[in-house]
């Protein structure tokens, strides 16, 4: 919270701050996560929320499974070709302001699954604010990420959400690597097979 200098004549129980700071303070301490848990990281997310680690201490225990009620998406686990359109739709359904944590190696970069079906990092297709490494990350690490997220919201958050407007490009690496293009050209095309076209959103 930014504490502005005290104005003469105000009573003791009134203090001055900026609207941006007050809004960010409130938002950062009551994050409602949307657990987009697909795989193993989801179990660690469960562990973080349950008895021993208790995410409630950081004001983020209200897991809501409807995207309309959430402001923090935690992508936990690998996202595959069939799931990505679902992820994008859920992201679009969340109301502003919203943030996204990419939890675990698979969500960040594809991890050990460098295969035909796994999306190599969700940040190529949706915006990501924070990356949590690990396979899967320990609950302590997720808690650290949450504190970091709160810090980020406090520092950059605005009442209007105007901090997001500058981010006009995808955060991840360029969707097609050179090697991938070369391989796709070299690969022997079986008769009658063409490259898969996903359904449009």
């Amino acid at each position: 919270m930014v504490d502005l200098p005290k104005q003469p004549g105000l009573p003791d129980n009134v203090f001055m701050t900026r609207l941006d700071a007050a809004a960010s303070w409130a938002r950062s301490n009551s994050l409602w996560p949307m657990p987009f848990a697909t795989a193993c990281c989801g179990i660690e997310l469960m562990a973080t929320a349950s008895s021993r680690f208790d995410l409630a201490r950081f004001g983020a225990e209200v897991m809501r499974f409807s995207p309309r009620q959430c402001d923090l998406m935690i992508v936990a686990g690998r996202v595959v070709m069939k799931m990505l359109p679902v992820l994008q739709r859920i992201w679009l359904q969340m109301p502003e302001p919203k943030w996204c944590i990419s939890m675990g190696a698979c969500a960040c970069s594809g991890g050990v699954f460098d295969t035909y079906a796994v999306v190599q990092g969700v940040d190529r297709f949706i915006p990501v604010d924070l990356y949590v490494p690990g396979c899967p990350p320990r609950p302590e690490q997720l808690i650290a990420a949450l504190i970091e997220m709160q810090d980020k919201i406090m520092k950059t958050g605005t009442f209007q959400g105007s901090e997001f407007s500058g981010r006009t490009e995808a955060t991840g690496p360029i969707p097609l690597e050179l090697e991938e293009i070369r391989r796709s050209r070299e690969a022997k095309l079986v008769d009658g097979l063409d490259i898969f076209q996903p359904p449009k959103l």
Binding site: Q88, D114, F125, F164, A170, E180, R183, D194, I195, F196
Partner: peptide, 28 residues
């Protein structure tokens, strides 16, 4: 919509680029 058979030996491990073939959503 997928047209190949991935466990056949003539299909490469990393696919033919299908996994990159999606629309991108940016933050703004």
């Amino acid at each position: 919509e997928f047209s190949a058979f991935p466990l056949r030996k003539d299909y490469p491990l990393k696919g033919r680029g299908e996994r990159h073939n999606f629309p991108v959503i940016t933050r703004s």
